[in-house]
């Protein structure tokens, strides 16, 4: 494992910790898209079916369990926790995420590395992850004002994607048979979605101002 991959995993983990911290500390999930969070649950469950069949390392197994557990915990809080669910901005979270699930699954049936149950679900999870942030980004755009923790959550998620691209570039040059065009292309698409957000994030950081997205 190279340093970029590790940095990517850690920023992914930090983003989840930031989100859990926001929900627990403020007892509020305002500004957070439940739809994006539900998509992440589907992404992790579909991708980590190999928990039962392949063992790669203790690190991999533990991280997979952490990602599944934390994403379930977030969705549980937003749906079930009495105080938290009252703060959910339902009227701002109207993205039709079923289309993303359906589209990703159809794409996985057409484009996959092998026509097996696990590989179809793996490809599905890769495609779905690429678009899972869209309901959250649309919600940020609609509310305009982004609170600090929500902004940092999206920032760390974007950083995770950027580090994974550096990781692939590194692997491409250091490993003789490194080719995984499904993950790399989807990863590029996914990272591109963050470009706009990053632009405004850095402007607000440079001006030491509150993050605001244009309507």
């Amino acid at each position: 494992m190279n340093i970029f991959r590790f940095a990517g995993d850690m920023t992914h983990l930090i983003s989840i910790v930031v989100l859990l911290l926001k929900i627990y500390a403020t007892k509020s999930c305002s500004g957070i898209s439940l739809k994006t969070q539900e998509l992440y649950v589907i992404v992790f469950l579909a991708r980590y079916l190999d928990l039962f069949t392949d063992f790669i390392s203790v690190y991999n197994t533990v991280m997979k369990l952490v990602f599944i557990g934390s994403s379930l915990a977030i969705v549980w809080c937003m749906r079930m926790h009495r105080a938290v669910k009252r703060t959910y901005d339902k009227e701002l979270d109207t993205f039709r995420h079923y289309f993303l699930v359906l589209g990703s699954f159809v794409l996985a049936l057409l484009l996959h590395e092998k026509f097996t149950f696990q590989e179809i679900f793996w490809a599905f999870s890769i495609y779905l992850e690429a678009v899972a942030i869209l309901p959250q980004l649309v919600m940020l755009q609609r509310s305009g004002n982004v609170d600090n923790l929500t902004g940092q959550y999206v920032f760390f998620l974007g950083a995770y994607r950027a580090f994974y691209i550096l990781n692939w570039i590194y692997r491409f040059f250091t490993e003789p048979h490194f080719s995984r065009w499904i993950a790399c292309l989807s990863g590029l698409v996914q990272t591109a979605f963050y470009a706009d957000f990053f632009y405004y994030y850095f402007i607000s950081w440079k001006n030491n101002a509150k993050l605001q997205l244009p309507a």
């Binding site: 991959r5 995993d9 992914h12 392949d54 063992f55 790669i56 991999n60 991280m63 092998k114």
Partner: peptide, 10 residues
Amino acid sequence: PNGGHMHDEL
């Protein structure tokens, strides 16, 4: 494992 093919990334 999986026909010699494993996804080693998360």
